[in-house]
Nucleic acid binder design. Structure first.
Lengths: 330, 330
DNA sequence: TACTTGACTGTAAACGATTACAGTTAATCG
DNA sequence: CGATTAACTGTAATCGTTTACAGTCAAGTA
């Protein structure tokens, strides 16, 4: 047996389908009509079919959130922030994650044309001209979290992660450290490249010497890769501080250092990035640069809702300031 | 300007809409027809409208995943598992999380009648007769991850978490511990209750004495609550082992114990649950019962896809065996 | 050649909502 | 009391697909 439709309700209530629809959407109706419709709805357990509604009004009531990998705690926080905001709205959250290649992102973006979402929040880990082009051609509101590619005119939530590196490095210098290493993620990712650029720039400004070997890249942003990467770090006995690509990587580094009996922060101070819950759970607790992923998610979601409500406003760019949270690893 | 529709494509290709539809859905067509349709699709950048298709074929190509809070790493792993499986399929993943009350779950379940999802994977943290009833009335395939309420006939992926407690307690007894504490989450949740029941039962079987004060409940499953709860644990100086509701809570406990200068595992051995990445990142590394959240997610997703393909098969129940991963905290 | 067959193709009716428009009531006013 | 108006209601078109059914056309068969 099929679910009740608006016609069954109309029949049951002895009114027209239009009246049912109007009652449901809050338009004026005679009290008598309204109560009969409501009674019929309750009797039949009617729920409007979302596909039919979506087809007619051209709104899916869905928002798509797209990022690289839900394994990364920063994205989890972001998802939480977005979820919290959407939860207060009529929108459902569709997750488009787990894709790892540029090709998959492109495929994903192309399929947005099917209209299953009213808006897109995307935080691309890779930059690619094709991705930029596809985003700019999208007919729906888009919020990009991360570095906005040049020429792309969409709402943007951006955190100055090179400022994050600066906070970390300055803090380390104040603590008397002068030989700072960077344990980074892959350079072909946006965060990886920004951290590396920021690092280079900041060290120069601080008049700290810098050689290429100070920077090392792990294969990805996991603690395991970080552990493996640092175990082949050439300058391990020369540095007195280490900035890591994120907290997971920092935790991997801490493990390695502890196994080698290298004192943290005595011999080497360690700074993480993201300020996840992990930072206060490892020993020593980890100084970390908070990139406010959860609030970025909230900001992005609010920006998107605002843009949906007001499609013609000029695009906004929100810059979020990272915060350094000092703990005992420095 | 509106997106191209199947009619525009038909017009452009000089064929009927039916032919376009057939080409798109892989039905036989003359090579000439097929190539003209494909060319027109490419020319116009046509993407079929998913709402229209959903309305007609009664399939949304979406799967809904519903759980309590994406803040919990176990659910994140589960989401990952589900996401990985769905990624290989045509289905999109809709996340319905962040709800905290029974009322919200109910509301969520009621709205499933709108047909925006072809299937539901749900892992309810609370048990409630109303929830059970609503699930059983759902017209779509459902997989429940967790304890199956009596009388509910849906596919189920279940992990015997009391067996998990048993593994932990037996291991601790073998290590010569006899006074084991339980740092649990709230008792009004399914996992909380199961852990408490399991704990009671196992200790009895192991002929270890048990008093009520051995079990303590934190306000929720976070490390912070765990920290606060253990700081008012009455028997802290008497126990020689502690089983925690999950790894986060264990990490909170470890932090407290380390601040008090209580040696782990010398004075108190600590066991976590979930075996998240965190377990190998804290110091000492944490012995933990792996509840295989990610594979449960995969299993559930596969079960759901199988059920969608084959709606009349009898419901299956998959029981997953927890594994104890021994590390240095015991 | 005429007829059957098979392989495609096109027409038009759904799917279940929303909404413009016209029609119906009831209320108000002169 | 009849006319005007306001408030509500119903009819039917529409959104963009899929698909049953009937039609076309060429090839194969007698």
């Amino acid at each position: 047996m099929r679910s009740p439709t608006i016609s069954s309700v109309a029949l049951h209530a002895g009114v027209s389908v239009a009246s049912v629809s109007r009652v449901m959407n809050g338009f004026a109706a005679r009290p008598e009509t309204e109560s009969r419709v409501r009674a019929a709805i309750a009797d039949l357990g009617y729920q409007p079919n979302s596909a039919a509604r979506a087809l007619k009004v051209r709104e899916s009531d869905q928002i798509c959130l797209s990022f690289a990998d839900i394994g990364n705690p920063a994205y989890v926080s972001m998802t939480r922030g977005v979820g919290r905001v959407l939860h207060e709205s009529k929108y459902r959250l569709v997750l488009a994650s787990s894709f790892s290649t540029v090709g998959e992102i492109i495929q994903q973006l192309e399929s947005m044309g099917r209209g299953y979402a009213d808006g897109l929040i995307i935080s691309p880990i890779y930059s690619d001209p094709k991705i930029t082009e596809l985003i700019s051609q999208l007919k729906m509101p888009v919020v990009l979290i991360g570095t906005l590619p040049t020429g792309l005119d969409v709402d943007n939530v951006h955190i100055d992660s090179s400022l994050g590196i600066k906070l970390a490095a300055t803090h380390l210098k104040e603590r008397g450290r002068s030989k700072i290493g960077l344990l980074n993620g892959p350079l072909n990712t946006n965060p990886g490249r920004r951290r590396s650029d920021g690092f280079r720039k900041v060290l120069k400004n601080l008049r700290l010497e810098i050689v290429e070997e100070q920077m090392i890249q792990a294969d990805d942003f996991t603690s395991q890769s970080a552990y493996e990467a640092i175990s082949r770090y050439p300058l391990i006995s020369e540095i007195d501080a280490l900035i890591c690509g994120n907290d997971l990587m920092a935790a991997g580094a801490l493990r390695f250092l502890s196994e080698l009996g290298i004192d943290v922060p005595g011999k080497i101070a360690v700074v993480g990035i993201d300020n996840t819950e992990l930072a206060s759970l490892v020993k020593p607790t980890l100084t970390s640069v908070d990139l406010l992923a959860e609030s970025r998610g909230e900001l992005a979601a609010n920006l998107l809702l605002d843009r949906i409500a007001n499609p013609k406003r000029a695009s906004k760019k929100i810059v979020v300031q990272p915060k350094l949270i000092v703990r005992s690893s420095t």
